[in-house]
Amino acid sequence: MPLLTSSYRPPRGFANGYVQSIYPTLFRNLDLPGLKRERLELDDGDFLDLDWSLCREGRTSSLVIVSHGLEGHSRRPYVLGTLRQANREGLDALAWNFRSCSGEPNRLPRMYHSGATDDLHRVVCHALQQGYQRVHLVGFSMGGNLSLLYAGRDAHMPQAVASVSGFSVPCDLKGSANQLAGRRNRIFMWRFLRDLRVKVEQKAQRFPDRVSADGYPQIRTFRQFDDRYTAPLHGFKDALDYWQQSSCLSYLSQLKIPALLVNADNDPFLSAACYPRAMARQHDYLHLEVPDSGGHVGFIERSTDQTYWMEKRALAFVKQVDG
């Protein structure tokens, strides 16, 4: 399949990848009235908080399920923008919060991680029990990796999952971790580790035999964090084992449903391996789109209602698949 030519063009003054990555966090504000929060109780004693955005009374035949990024949640502007766009296209939508990301700590020692497709599977199965005939997965950053990994790796994925889209996806977790460890990304790394510290300290208080926050300020990279916390809490040998098993790049070749991967060429978080051009050229299902600009979960557009290009692109792909 040929690589897709992107229609995205940044507004004047927004071509820089760092500007694209930072600006929405500081200046984009969205509200979506009518969200309905549901707590999904899990078979392991934990829970996931889901936010539903229904476009009309009753159920539509297709549902869009949105997965947020690292240290994100279902009320982030890019998530709300996607829910809103789905409703505008006549589709119901659901955004789910990873464990510990809804504003309330989860109950178990485990948290969330890039390979936790079991939780996405729980959400998909719960959604299908509500009567939807088709499900379309849309993920951003870590949520994009999770969605593509699920579609490529999990043999038990229901046949009702009709498509998957990922934006700003760290397909190669090791390479992306190395990118974020660089000097130019120090502010992003600091912010992620600052936010994760809150969750680590909560776990240390509730499970002192499993988690310790002692010495946390000495952690400077994801390799250090994943070696100390992610790997032991989730059954991996170490950070390298976690990254290898949880990178969707290893499973893209196994995709059997239409998949859209959109990674901006100037994304400061992504390594060269996150642009699988050669694979896409030979793949029947993988559509790779590499805009020159866009940054990380940026793709800014000027509009009166703060609609961004990536949300319109995601729903255009969903509608194309739905026919």
Rank of each mutant, 00 (worst) to 15 (best):
residue 101 C to N: 06
residue 103 G to D: 10
residue 106 N to E: 09
residue 107 R to D: 02
residue 107 R to L: 12
residue 109 P to C: 07
residue 110 R to D: 09
residue 111 M to N: 09
residue 114 S to C: 14
residue 114 S to P: 07
residue 117 T to S: 14
residue 120 L to H: 00
residue 121 H to C: 10
residue 124 V to N: 01
residue 124 V to E: 01
residue 125 C to I: 07
residue 126 H to V: 09
residue 132 Y to I: 01
residue 132 Y to E: 01
residue 132 Y to D: 00
residue 134 R to M: 00
residue 134 R to I: 00
residue 135 V to Y: 04
residue 135 V to A: 06
residue 136 H to T: 01
residue 137 L to K: 04
residue 138 V to N: 03
residue 140 F to P: 00
residue 140 F to H: 04
residue 141 S to T: 11
residue 142 M to R: 00
residue 145 N to H: 07
residue 147 S to H: 05
residue 147 S to R: 03
residue 147 S to A: 11
residue 149 L to T: 03
residue 149 L to C: 03
residue 150 Y to C: 09
residue 151 A to T: 07
residue 153 R to W: 15
residue 154 D to G: 02
residue 154 D to R: 08
residue 154 D to K: 05
residue 155 A to Y: 13
residue 156 H to D: 15
residue 158 P to K: 07
residue 166 G to M: 08
residue 166 G to V: 03
residue 166 G to T: 08
residue 167 F to E: 04
residue 170 P to F: 14
residue 170 P to C: 12
residue 172 D to M: 02
residue 173 L to A: 07
residue 175 G to L: 10
residue 175 G to Y: 06
residue 180 L to R: 06
residue 181 A to H: 03
residue 182 G to I: 09
residue 182 G to Y: 04
residue 183 R to I: 14
residue 184 R to V: 13
residue 187 I to L: 14
residue 187 I to K: 08
